[in-house]
Design a protein around this nucleic acid. Structure first.
Lengths: 185, 185
DNA sequence: AAAAATATGTAGACCGATCTATTAAGGAGT
DNA sequence: ACTCCTTAATAGATCGGTCTACATATTTTT
């Protein structure tokens, strides 16, 4: 794959990521992707011959990895487990607010839309969540209840992010932050 | 409003509720609503002259009240706070699994899709969440940290429901259930 | 009570816009 | 010269929404 080709491919993926996170699978049109990325229609189908499903599937996995990397970085520095999770909530809250309440969880909307529709996309979302859960479990390693706790923390983060987006306010994130100590005691 | 008219209005709302919960705002087409409800196009626009936004707004609020009523019923019977929340999780888990992983939170998908789009719909979702939060706060009444706790429990429920739908499995709900005691201690 | 008049609701054809996807041809890079 | 990639026209389906004609209740008038 040539240099130019790879660049457009990435531009298309980035535009898709952005649009899907804002409007979901059905709400993000390929025409919008084309307009936002600057790539023409034919290029889209050259790089993603299987169409919208392939495009969004790849963009979901890509977004998942980006969050994964950011969390992994936080995991290395944080002191206590509670401080680490607080850091994640702060990071996601910043991202959400700075984007004008558009960028919450890049997977959630598609996961909800596609749970009963496209098998491959449902799988992509499931995989991303599993990978985040694994990252949390590693960070909480050692505890006897690390499995339950990792799922619970992930649910708490996702739920708080959902409420924050719905209310257009950081308050849910902050309030949840304050209850972490009890959960991780 | 005559009897017949009210009946079709309700049939339309019920069909909308079902479709929106499965596919979201953009994914639920009015043609599908018409087909599922059996009502003709003209009736839809007679009962909901402001179109799709009005239709989905009303259906969201309606669905919110239904969940509210179910939770209120549970609140009366449950013994401890933890047992009460466990009951809610069991109820929602049953609903989700029995529907073939289609019916999770009737508000979440639209809330995520519309946070940065339609103001009235964003408000509708925000209101429904606020009313659920108030119901939880009432049930937890007395505790000094009831405010924080209500938001945290709601986030936990929403997050667990999201993960359960994404993975098509009750496991997240069950694991979260097991950690409630620590949170509510 | 019968008839006329007025709401109330149903029915579906139709509109322009937009959707995803395909196609055949040509330009750019190596 | 040959592959990689872009370009834009186009297809066919579906989208939300409007419109007119019709049927069915409900009330008003005689």
């Amino acid at each position: 794959m040539g240099k130019k080709g790879t660049e457009t491919r990435v531009r298309i993926l980035e535009a898709t990521q952005e649009l899907v996170e804002t409007a979901g699978y059905a709400g993000a049109g390929l025409n919008q992707v084309i307009a936002a990325s600057g790539a023409p229609r034919g290029s889209l189908y050259f790089h993603f011959p299987d169409g919208k499903d392939q495009l969004i599937g790849e963009s979901i996995r890509r977004a998942g990895q980006a969050i994964d990397a950011a969390v992994e970085e936080l995991a290395a520095s944080g002191a206590s487990a509670a401080e680490f999770v607080e850091g994640v909530l702060r990071l996601l809250g910043d991202r959400l607010e700075e984007s004008g309440w558009r960028k919450g969880c890049p997977v959630a909307t598609v996961a909800l839309e596609m749970a009963a529709a496209s098998e491959p996309l449902q799988q992509a979302c499931s995989d991303v969540y599993a990978s985040w859960e694994a990252a949390l479990r590693r960070r909480l390693g050692g505890r006897p209840d690390a499995d339950d706790l990792a799922v619970t923390i992930l649910a708490l983060i996702e739920g708080a992010l959902l409420l924050a987006k719905a209310h257009r306010s950081r308050e849910p994130l902050d309030r949840v932050s304050g209850r972490l100590a009890a959960l991780l005691s």
